[in-house]
């Protein structure tokens, strides 16, 4: 049984639907990468799952954690889950920490909520966690304020704070985007090390496919509020089937290929307020037909174990993959 299971999750802001029925499972201990262009709904998916969206958001669907329903659950249920079973860290570590509270105390707050630690016990445990995530001179640093620390150190504090509740799942929402390259690599190493030590599952949200391949077992590609392809890292990286996934891979600068290999996906991300009836990617897709523009593909399991939502997928090396004709007849 998956640890957390998202079914038909839909989110709308002021009548504009931005998430169109997302289905997603995360197993215990697994690392799942979630990629897609800005605005496709990666953050909203997980904020909605934890009930962290503002009141203006309309959320429907189901999110179950070990069989317990979270969508529409009571405040106290959600408060027990947040930080305790599922922790989340965010893109901009400096502004994600409260500027007027000492960092040690911010970690200690989680310890109090989920582990009942108070006073000196909480302080010492906070220092131990800071030490564990690689903050030098943790005892002294625990008394500093976020603005006195660098971005990388703030992200380490965020990670320490997330670990403080001993969660089973960590949602890392672009944890390295705001950091420079060397610090990015250090944070990725830290996350891998923490996972190796605690066996915690992780959802790694990122634009950086390289980082995803480094830390994840499985990858999920989102486009315009839907999952369009999902599969194991090696299979998907070796043979991306969805034209959008393909486009993402082609846009990665490669060392051996030189500059000319870099092919950005043409066109822009669709506006969630006016999506076409057909496949949301069809306006930007070289393989799209009239059929694609008027019919909505659904995410379907493929013989090779991945999930795909496309009428005309890129034909890969694998001969066993479905032909486009089958998809069209299935959807029609």
């Amino acid at each position: 049984m998956p640890f957390i299971s998202i079914r038909d999750l839909r989110v709308a802001f002021d009548g504009t639907q931005v998430l169109h029925g997302v289905n997603l499972d995360v197993a215990k201990g697994e690392a799942l990468g979630l990629v897609g262009e800005s605005g496709c709904g990666k953050s909203v998916t997980w904020l909605a799952a934890l009930g962290l969206l503002p009141g203006t958001a309309r959320v429907t669907g189901s999110v179950t954690l070990d069989g317990q329903e979270l969508c529409g659950a009571s405040r106290s249920t959600l408060e027990g889950v947040r930080g305790g079973r599922v922790a989340m860290i965010f893109q901009d570590p400096s502004s994600s920490l409260n500027p007027v509270i000492r960092v040690g105390r911010q970690i200690a707050e989680t310890l109090r909520i989920h582990r009942g630690l108070m006073g000196d016990a909480a302080r010492l445990e906070a220092i131990r966690l800071m030490d564990m995530v690689g903050i030098p001179d943790a005892r002294k640093r625990s008394d500093t304020y976020p603005h006195e620390l660098s971005g990388g150190q703030c992200q380490r504090i965020m990670i320490a704070m997330a670990l403080a509740g001993e969660p089973d799942l960590l949602i890392a929402d672009e944890p390295t985007t705001a950091l420079d390259a060397t610090i990015q690599a250090q944070i990725l190493d830290l996350l891998s090390a923490v996972r190796a030590e605690t066996g915690m599952a992780m959802v790694f949200i990122s634009h950086d496919l390289g980082a995803v391949s480094q830390v994840c077992d499985r990858i999920c590609v989102m486009y315009a509020g839907r999952i369009v392809e999902e599969g194991r890292i090696d299979a998907t990286f070796g043979n991306p089937r969805h034209p959008y996934t393909r486009g993402l891979f082609d846009a990665i600068p490669r060392l051996e290929g030189g500059r000319e290999r870099l092919v950005p996906i043409h066109g822009t991300v669709p506006d969630p307020r006016n999506l076409s009836n057909g496949c949301a990617f069809s306006p930007r897709c070289d393989r799209a037909t009239d059929f694609c523009r008027s019919n909505l593909p659904v995410l379907k399991p493929q013989p090779d174990g991945r999930f795909l939502s496309c009428f005309h997928p890129v034909t890969g090396i694998s001969k066993s993959s479905c032909t486009s004709g089958q998809h069209e007849s299935a959807a029609a």
């Binding site: 904020l47 934890l50 962290l52 408060e79 027990g80 889950v81 947040r82 930080g83 305790g84 922790a87 989340m88 965010f90 901009d92 502004s95 994600s96 920490l97 409260n98 500027p99 707050e109 989680t110 909520i113 989920h114 965020m158 704070m161 997330a162 403080a164 509740g165």
Partner: peptide
């Protein structure tokens, strides 16, 4: 963002 962080820790 830090308000969301505080909520996210339960």
């Amino acid at each position: 963002p830090y308000i969301r962080t505080a909520s996210a820790k339960g």
